Every structure is written in structure tokens, then in C-alpha cells.
Amino acid sequence: GHYRIRINGREFEIRGISEEEIRHLEEALRNGADEKILKEIVDRLRG
């Protein structure tokens, strides 16, 4: 998958993330885990 997200007015492209991972992120966001989720995304993109 290849997705664009906007955070604090800046747009980011996220590549190589699966539909299942996105559902997991959405679930966590609904549970209020904003900073933790951003850290997970950044860590994943770093490799």
C-alpha cells in the first residue's frame, strides 16, 4: 500500500504498509494513542 497522511499541516507519504496495519493504527487512534502511533509509524519507516 501507498498512502498520504497529513500531520500538523505537513503531508507525508507512507509506503509499504498493509491494510491490516492500517486497521490496527485506526483502532489505536480511536483509543487515543496519538503520540505512540506516530512513533510506531516513524520507527517503521526508519526500517
Rank of each mutant, 00 (worst) to 15 (best):
G1C: 12
G1P: 15
G1Y: 05
H2T: 05
H2G: 14
H2M: 04
Y3C: 14
Y3H: 14
Y3I: 15
Y3N: 10
Y3W: 10
Y3Q: 12
Y3S: 09
Y3R: 11
Y3F: 15
R4D: 03
R4I: 15
R4N: 05
R4K: 13
R4C: 14
I5D: 01
I5N: 01
I5E: 02
I5V: 12
I5S: 00
I5H: 00
I5T: 02
I5C: 15
R6I: 15
R6F: 13
R6S: 09
R6W: 08
R6P: 01
R6C: 15
R6Q: 13
I7D: 00
I7W: 03
I7C: 04
I7R: 00
I7Y: 02
I7Q: 00
N8F: 06
N8I: 01
N8T: 01
N8K: 02
N8P: 00
N8R: 03
N8H: 05
N8Y: 03
G9T: 01
G9Y: 01
G9Q: 02
G9F: 01
G9E: 03
R10H: 15
R10M: 15
R10I: 15
R10K: 15
R10T: 15
R10E: 15
R10Q: 15
E11P: 01
E11G: 01
E11C: 08
E11I: 10
E11W: 15
E11Y: 08
F12E: 02
F12C: 10
F12R: 00
F12H: 03
F12S: 00
E13Q: 03
E13I: 14
E13S: 02
E13A: 02
E13D: 04
E13M: 04
I14Q: 00
I14D: 00
I14F: 14
I14C: 05
R15E: 07
R15G: 06
R15F: 14
R15N: 09
R15L: 07
R15P: 10
G16L: 08
G16S: 05
G16Y: 09
G16P: 03
G16M: 08
G16A: 06
G16I: 08
I17Q: 02
I17R: 02
I17V: 12
I17L: 08
S18E: 03
S18L: 04
S18C: 04
S18N: 06
S18Y: 02
S18G: 07
S18V: 03
S18A: 06
S18D: 04
E19C: 08
E19M: 12
E19W: 10
E19I: 13
E19F: 12
E19P: 12
E19H: 07
E20H: 11
E20T: 09
E20F: 06
E20Y: 06
E20W: 07
E20N: 09
E20G: 07
E20L: 08
E21R: 02
E21S: 08
E21D: 14
E21P: 00
E21H: 05
E21T: 07
E21N: 07
E21V: 06
E21K: 03
E21W: 07
E21M: 10
I22E: 03
I22W: 12
R23Q: 12
R23W: 08
R23T: 10
R23Y: 12
R23P: 02
R23N: 09
H24F: 14
H24N: 12
H24Q: 14
H24C: 13
H24K: 11
H24T: 14
L25Q: 00
L25H: 00
L25A: 01
L25R: 00
L25P: 00
L25V: 07
E26S: 05
E26C: 13
E26L: 10
E26A: 05
E26Y: 05
E26T: 06
E27F: 04
E27G: 06
E27H: 10
E27K: 07
E27R: 07
E27P: 01
A28G: 05
A28P: 00
A28F: 12
A28L: 15
A28M: 14
A28N: 05
L29Y: 05
L29G: 02
L29E: 03
L29C: 05
L29I: 14
L29D: 01
L29T: 03
L29R: 03
R30E: 07
R30V: 07
R30I: 09
R30Q: 11
R30C: 08
N31G: 10
N31M: 12
N31R: 09
N31S: 13
N31E: 09
G32A: 06
G32R: 05
G32T: 04
G32P: 03
A33D: 11
A33T: 12
A33S: 08
A33L: 14
A33P: 06
A33C: 09
A33N: 07
A33Q: 09
D34E: 11
D34W: 15
D34R: 05
D34F: 15
D34K: 05
D34H: 14
E35W: 12
E35F: 10
E35N: 06
E35L: 11
E35Q: 06
E35H: 12
K36Q: 10
K36Y: 13
K36M: 13
K36W: 08
K36F: 11
K36H: 13
K36D: 11
K36C: 09
I37V: 11
I37R: 08
I37Q: 11
I37Y: 13
I37D: 07
I37E: 09
I37N: 06
I37K: 08
I37W: 09
L38N: 01
L38Q: 02
L38Y: 03
K39D: 05
K39F: 15
K39S: 11
E40G: 11
E40T: 11
E40C: 06
E40P: 03
E40D: 10
E40H: 08
E40V: 11
E40F: 06
E40R: 06
I41E: 02
I41L: 11
I41D: 00
I41S: 02
I41N: 01
I41W: 15
I41P: 00
V42T: 05
V42A: 05
V42H: 04
V42S: 03
D43S: 07
D43K: 08
D43L: 05
D43W: 01
D43F: 01
D43I: 08
D43V: 06
D43T: 06
R44D: 04
R44Q: 11
R44N: 08
R44I: 10
R44K: 09
R44A: 10
R44L: 09
R44C: 08
R44H: 07
L45S: 05
L45K: 03
L45A: 05
L45I: 13
L45R: 03
R46A: 12
R46Q: 15
R46Y: 07
R46E: 10
R46I: 15
R46W: 10
R46T: 15
R46V: 15
R46H: 14
G47D: 11
G47M: 11
G47C: 14
G47N: 12
G47I: 14
G47P: 10
G47Q: 12
G47T: 11
